[in-house]
Write a protein that binds this DNA or RNA. Structure first.
Length: 856
RNA sequence: GCCCGCGUGGUGGAAUGGUAGACACAGGGGACUUAAAAUCCCCAGGCAGAAAUGCCGUGCCGGUUCGAAUCCGGCCGCGGGUACCA
């Protein structure tokens, strides 16, 4: 007898699908459409298990939806611009374009053997001029619509490499390559006005019914709507033009506990002061070395510098507060200035203790307990805003109020007394899209001495990246590419210069889903196609994109609607979102030759396990680090190609879907793939036996019941993204089928159903079995089996009996036995009789069909 | 720091207010075999016990409930995001 040969059958069926155009997405009115999309990959060089997991999940949905009668759109593309291509060019030479397209070719070749139901005719890369040219057209339309503007913003500047660094390239305040201390530098940059849509993006979260609530919560917190008071302190003898400091606070109820005013080192007043004061200049320079990331700013030691200036408290002109320049205050949020109330904010309290500033509580716990007040050395008192507290220095006398009420009272009081006004602010900042890099979509504008900033004419799009660039000198090669940079003004025709900044790669990924609906259109989208295929019915990707990518896409869809590139219904482009867990792996590192703090990372395949610990081939001992998301930079990646070539794609697919629930992280371990392969061979063997035998048997009806139960359970698993649960049920049904003594006809029917139920996960094996058992046509086009409800119900059920909430026994009763009868039977159970010991139960809980609990 | 998750046997996990450990992996025992591989069958949370059975048990502490892995409060640990990694 022959054997299961994955390599042979997988190639055969992939060809069959291709010949039949099985996965080509077609518009037609006779079927409902279904658009399933997985977040497209960055072409890093090789596919990894995270890709296999992500795309297999999408494939299960896509294949299932085809078999339930949908026109399915399931495309694939490449998020192809970005820093790694430039880094590779600098490190190993070559050109980012070559590196990227080579990587794409390799990864496509690695992906195709997975047998994914992708319509490859729609494939594109974001670095294709056909794609980014349309993105430039979108930019021009959005600029015209007033959705884009320019302003100054800070970047990380490496003074040695003379280049702008990404946040991840700043390590402990130093440039990753040069090791130089990073400075903050201001540049004029392009911005999307996403903050104009703060309220709408926040409110619309409520309409995203099929998004995970954790993602919705993260987005809501990120947008960060807050209500507060904005007012000005008057500065005593303030320098020219700085006689007031505008502050914003979300806790105006603590105003009577204010102790200092803090301003950002980037605040105009700080900049004014540092001009004439070397100490202030030195302090601000020190602050600017922290870099631009919120994380670095917040984690840095909180430092302040007393400017010597004082402000008057708005409600007590004799009360003076010092102005500190403080390194933890962000110029981008609120007004870049705050007042600190140490009693009710731990950060302010730490600051006050460090600089010996007063601590005054404005409220205390409602019920006097053992709470140590902050003025007596306790921690800052920060109760939830909905908890009632006792205001001792509030704005409504000696009262018990919640924090929220206290804030309302404070705002009303301040407004009535002419001290500022209540305002609503959002944390969300405008989206800066300028990048001082080569490998991105050129921003299609021209700087003209006559006309100012002018958009390129659409007929001149795409503004193509020049190929003749080199990366031997740090910085953006576009800046020094004279023949590319120098051009004529589209408006007046005089000599002018191109913008040399390129776009943030988040722009590329903010509309690719729309482009897939008409990838060859001469305009960014084609309305008829967008109208038919949008929205994405199921979007699948990593939770690491919960905020930025998804929020930017939501904004971009609105902007594309305003500029008439998407229909109204598509302003929320993703009807359902599923965030898969990440594939994680241990990390392996050895000490860096130059520095004890830095590590050199190693691939799992380069680490040899031995009795005296893990080492490299040359014997260097390896330190095992934490289990984290597989990433190229930490090298903790596993190559799925080996698994596919050894066991076949179906095994790899089956393995990544089994065991771990899809939303949870899965730690990759080498064991398990073999087990999956064994199971698939077993299924093949069982089917092959059934195909060759023809005999009567017994228990046909039991097998049919098990089959219908399996149809029901597996379908439910797929519908609810419980692929691991579906697979567990498939194991169980396979065991039942193998042990069944039923006749050939019933077994054949069961095995064909098994093949169908497995087909979204193991499509090649399923086609093979389907054909082996005489199934007609491709299983990929065969309608999904439907469970017969009548076969699902058992007439007898087993009820557990608890005594005081602990399971002690069980009884089997007919399904519709009355509650009284169940109670009677339960009281005769010997465990219950023993527990009662002749007495009466205190209480009896009978939940029909569920459980019996006897309280004794 | 802040925001969001997660934590269950040796391992991956099941159970989302109602029988904790389904289904697998690794392990142990057995059948088949000259032998091995493959395959098939059985065992398997911990402690005690010959067994029946009893007690303990879902990161830790406390609460709500007839009943909590599940809900609430407080900790601890790990992971993701933190606006120029994608």
């Amino acid at each position: 007898m022959s054997q299961y040969n994955a390599g042979q059958i997988e190639k055969k069926w992939q060809q069959a699908w291709e010949q039949a155009d099985t996965f080509k997405a077609v518009r037609s009115d006779d079927k409902p459409k279904y658009y399933v999309l997985e977040m497209f990959p960055y072409p890093s060089g090789r596919i990894h298990m995270g890709h296999v997991r992500n795309y297999t999940m999408g494939d299960v949905i896509a294949r299932y939806k085809i078999s339930t009668g949908h026109n399915v759109l399931h495309p694939m593309g490449w998020d192809a611009f970005g820093m790694p291509a430039e880094n590779a060019a600098m490190e190993i030479g070559g050109h980012p374009k070559t590196w990227t397209y080579d990587n794409i070719a390799v990864m496509r070749d690695q992906m195709k053997p997975l047998g994914l139901s992708i319509d490859w005719s729609r494939e594109f890369a974001t670095c294709d001029p056909e794609y980014y040219g349309q993105q430039q057209a979108l930019f021009i339309d959005m600029l015209d619509a007033g959705l884009i503007y320019r302003k100054n913003a800070v970047v990380n500047w490496d003074p040695v490499d003379m280049t702008v660094l990404a946040n991840e390239q700043v390590i402990d305040g130093k440039g990753w390559r040069s090791g130089a201390e990073v400075e903050r530098r201001e540049l004029t940059q392009w911005f999307f006005k996403i903050s104009d849509y703060s309220e709408e993006l926040l409110d619309a979260i409520d309409t995203l019914d099929n998004w995970p609530s954790k993602v919705k919560l993260m987005q809501a917190n990120w947008i960060g709507k807050s209500r507060g008071l904005q007012f000005a302190f008057s500065v005593i003898d303030g320098p020219d033009g700085h006689d007031r400091v505008e502050v914003y606070t979300t806790r105006p109820d603590t105003l009577m506990g204010a102790s200092f005013v803090g301003i950002s080192p980037d605040h105009p007043m700080a900049k004014h002061l540092e001009k004439d004061n070397a100490d202030i200049a030195a302090f601000c320079a020190e602050c600017r070395k922290i870099g631009t990331s919120e994380e670095a700013l917040e984690k840095a030691e909180k430092l302040g510098f007393d400017t010597g200036l004082r402000v008057r408290h708005p409600f007590d002109t004799a009360w003076e507060l010092p102005i500190y320049i403080a390194n933890f205050i962000l110029m981008d949020y609120g007004t870049g200035a705050i007042f600190g109330c140490p009693a009710h904010d731990q950060r302010d309290l730490d600051f006050a203790r460090k600089y010996d500033l007063p601590v005054v509580s404005t409220y205390a716990p409602a019920v006097a307990d053992n709470h140590v007040m902050p003025e007596d050395g306790g921690a800052a008192y920060v109760p939830p805003k909905l908890e009632k507290v006792h205001y001792v220095k509030g704005f409504a006398g000696d009262e018990m109020q919640t924090g929220d009420q206290g804030i309302d009272t404070a705002i009303a009081f301040c407004e009535a007394n002419g001290v500022g006004q209540g305002v609503t602010k959002f944390r969300l900042r405008d989206w800066g899209l300028s990048r001082q890099r080569y490998w991105g979509c050129p921003i299609p504008v021209i700087h003209c001495n006559n006309c100012g900033v002018v958009a390129e004419k659409k007929e001149n799009l795409p503004v193509q990246l020049p190929d003749d660039v080199s990366f031997d000198i740090p910085g953006n090669p576009l800046d020094r590419h004279a023949t590319w940079r120098d051009t004529d003004c589209p408006s007046c025709g005089k000599p002018a210069k191109r913008e040399t900044d390129t776009m943030d790669t988040f722009v590329d990924s903010s509309w690719y889903f729309a482009r897939f609906t008409a990838p060859d259109a001469a305009t960014p989208t084609n309305m008829a196609d967008a109208d038919y295929w949008m929205n994405v019915d199921q979007y699948i990707g990593g939770v690491e994109h919960a905020i930025l990518h998804l929020l930017y896409s939501r904004f971009f869809a609105r902007a594309m609607h305003i500029t008439e590139h998407l229909p109204k219904k598509a302003i929320e482009p993703f009807n359902a979102l599923f965030t898969q867990g990440m594939v994680t792996h241990e990390t392996y590192s050895t000490a860096h030759p130059d520095s004890n703090d830095r590590r050199v990372w190693h691939l799992p395949e380069d680490v040899i396990r031995s009795d005296d610990g893990p080492k490299l081939a040359n014997g260097t001992p390896v330190e095992i680090g934490p289990v984290i998301k597989m990433s190229k930079s930490k090298k903790n990646v596993v190559d799925p190609v080996n698994i596919i070539s050894t066991y076949g794609a179906d095994t790899a697919r089956w393995f990544v879907l089994s065991d771990s629930p899809p939303e949870r992280d899965v730690e990759w371990t080498a064991s398990g793939a073999e087990a999956a392969a064994k199971h698939l061979s077993r299924v093949w063997r069982i089917a092959s036996d059934i195909a060759q035998n023809d005999a009567a048997g017994s228990g046909d009806d039991d097998l049919r019941r098990a089959m219908h139960k399996a149809i029901f359970d597996v379908t439910q698993g797929i519908e609810s993204f419980g692929f691991n649960a579906s697979i567990a049920k498939l194991y169980a049904f396979t065991n039942t089928l193998q042990k069944s003594k039923a006749g050939s006809a019933a077994k054949r029917e069961a095995a064909k159903t098994l093949a169908q139920l497995m087909s979204p996960m193991t499509p090649h094996l399923s086609e093979e079995i389907w054909t082996m058992l005489g199934g007609e046509g491709l299983i990929a086009n065969t309608p999904w089996p439907v469970a017969d409800e009548a076969m699902l119900v058992d007439d007898k059920i087993t009820l557990p009996i608890q005594i005081n909430g602990k399971r002690k026994s069980e009884i089997t009763v007919t399904k519709d036995l009355s509650k009284d009868e169940v109670e009677k039977l339960a009281l005769q159970d010997k465990a219950v009789v023993r527990a009662l010991d002749g007495g009466q139960p205190k209480k009896m809980i009978v939940v029909p069909g569920r459980i019996i609990n006897v309280v004794v």
